[in-house]
Design a binder for these strands. Structure first.
Length: 115
DNA sequence: ACGGTGACGAGAT
DNA sequence: TATCTCGCCACCG
């Protein structure tokens, strides 16, 4: 069960994002120690096996906007899921990151990186 | 093995 | 503030 690729680490992290909070692609990249791999994080989520059942909708971009645009993971669905959790979008369809961005406990990150 | 690809992001205009 | 541009890098055929 060792940590294989970056993809699996991304999925593991997203699994821990609590309801009512969000993370950004870039933030996940930083947590993983690859601050410039934000695009790769996005790609990892694009190829998320649905059977993993991870809260993919809690990942948005650094502007506080929804980037999703593929199949069942549509922007509309993602927004609805987030609003159901109490997350608020402003008039420009943005989430206030100061208010809703997740600040993961350091020990959680260490345990994920050290798997 | 190697290059195209993408749910990004920061800086420039 | 809204767009546009370009660099980024793990995957997979």
């Amino acid at each position: 069960m060792s940590a294989k690729g970056l993809f699996e680490k991304v999925w593991t992290i997203v699994t821990h994002v609590p309801e009512g909070q969000v993370v950004t692609y870039g933030q996940i990249a930083v947590l993983l120690g690859n601050p410039r791999a934000a695009r790769t994080v996005g790609w990892a989520l694009h190829s998320t096996p649905d059977l993993l059942d991870i809260p993919w909708h809690r990942v948005i971009n650094s502007a506080g906007r929804i980037s999703t645009d593929c199949g069942e993971h549509s922007p509309t669905v993602q927004r609805q899921l987030l609003e159901q959790e109490g997350i608020v979008f402003d008039a420009r369809d943005r989430v206030d990151l100061d208010r809703f961005q997740w600040r993961p406990p350091l020990e959680l990150i260490e345990s994920i990186l050290g798997e």
